[in-house]
Every structure is written in structure tokens, then in C-alpha cells.
Amino acid sequence: MLSFVKLLQNESMKIYRRIGTWVMIGILLVVTLLFGILLKIDSPNDFEGKDWRTVLEEENKSYEKELAKVEEEGNARLYQDFLKESYAINQYRLDHNISPEDSAWEFVHNAASLISLITLFTIIVGAISVAGEFSWGTVKLLLIRPVSRSKILLSKYIATFQFALTMLVILFLFSFLIGALLFGLGDVTKPYLAYENGQVVEKNMFLHTLSLFGFQCIDLLMMATFAFMISAVFRSSSLAIGLAIFLMFTGVQLVSILAAMDITWVKYLLFANTDLTPYFDGTPWIEGMTLSFSITMLVIYFVLFNVTSWLIFNKRDVSV
């Protein structure tokens, strides 16, 4: 056990002693700050000088019109759902006097979309962690130690996610700080409004933000594991990074296109299952997909990726 901690120390040292890692942390901070400033400039808080109630009422009128038009055409189910949801939430705010104005929590909530940036960085770190040893040639010194290859691979895998966790904590804390500075702390007890089964429900904002981070992390976990596998199989960090990022950006698009075409096997694709939020807050891609189905698919992919990396890393000859 102690020896494994030492392996983790090694992997962490190799991650944090590289300038690239600090550049990534710097980029995350800068982007969060810019994101905050952008939201502040384009702030919905002033509602062009009008009262937020008037704005929401106007919005709802246009939603109603749009919905009637789309329903007449009888397709675009996802768009219909989106309109219904937006309408219901606006109505709930008006009925219960809950302002839509941004505060620190809401900025953290918004900043959760920056987790895709962390996913990107984790893909890079994970891919370099394995393939880097091959391109640096250091793998020849690494694997001639009294430590099994499995342990070395596991230490790399865990160190990669330690990095991701660090980045997530940085994002969470820093975005709260930026949010508080730019939008004020606001009403900390303000609830988050979710739309579940045609009903608007109040939820604790802090827990909701955490769960939002958590849901985003599924994508992070899967994509980083995928990059890890590619890098272990092909021993090329650029291939692993390129492929993982390409899939990360096109995967969801592809699934949404296929889903819109009502192709049902799309539900077996990884990207149809990485976003679990629709099961709690919205509607799933394909009708009939359930939370347990998605979790099963995720577990299958997760095991497949990891077993492949492990088998290849353990068995193949090192020939750098």
C-alpha cells in the first residue's frame, strides 16, 4: 500500500512539474474570469431597465405563440419540451416571486459548463501520462523496476483523476469567488427550479450545483478513460488527445442528429448516455431510455475501456 502511495507521488510529480499543467490551470482561471465578465456585461440582471416580472411575462407570451406553431406542425419533440419547460419555470417564478437575477451560486451553476474545459485538460494529462513515457523513452526505465505494470498503470489512472478533481475544486471555488465579486452573494437560500414530469420543483441550490458538477463529471470520466485507453493502445499522445477531443465535440452532435432522425440504436452509443441530467431534469434523447439503461451502458463502456488499456499495457512488448 505504501509503495502505491509512492507511485502516486511519482505520477503527481510528473504532472505538476510540467509547465503545461500550470498553463492549463492558468487557462481555467482566466476563462472563468472572462466568462464572469462576459455574463456581467451581457447581464440579464438589468433586464433593459424593466422589472423582471414584465420581462418574464413577455417571454412567456412569445413561448406560447411559438409552441402553438410547433405543435401544429407536429414534430420537433425536443424543442416542444424545451418551450414547455421554459414557460413553466417562468410562470413559477412569477407565481412565487422568485427572481431570475444572477447571484454567486448561479454563476457557479453557469460555470459548470466550463467542466468540458477540464475534461479536455484531463484528456491531455491522461494521454500524456501513458503515451508520454513512450515518446520520452522513459518507459524503459519505468518498467524495469520491481513494480508490476498493472500498478504503474493504475497509479497513472488515479493520478490523472486526482488532477481532474483538483481542477474541479479550483473551478468550484474560483467561480464562487468570481460570482460573489461580480454578481454579489445574493440570496444564498434561493432555490433552484427544476422541471420534472411536467411539474416545477424547488431544489437546494448548493446540492443542485454539486450534482450538476457530478453529472458533468460522467462525461469527463468516460472521455478521459477513453483517451487513456487510446494512449495505452497506440502509445501516441497526439492520437489519443485528438481522437478523444474530436469525439467529445462531435459525439453529442452525432447522437442528437441520429436521435432527431428517430434511429433507435443510437441509444447504445456512449454519447447518448453520458448526460444523465435529462432523467432528472428534462427529457431523454430517445423515448424509452431509462436511467438504469444509461448507467448499465456507461459501466459497460467503462469496463471495456479499462480492460483494454490494462491488457495492452501489461502484455505488449516495449519497443521504443
Binding site: 507521488q9 511519482n10 510529480m13 510528473k14 510540467r18 520520452w136 520491481p146
Partner: peptide, 18 residues
Amino acid sequence: ELYKFLTGYQNLLHFWRM
């Protein structure tokens, strides 16, 4: 081939931990 971004000592520390 050693870790170029580490110092000589850190390289040795790395292998010492193993």
C-alpha cells in the same frame, strides 16, 4: 532517456520511490 522537465535529483527520487 530521463524526464527532461525534472531535475536530476527529482529523476533519482522518482526511481528511488520505486
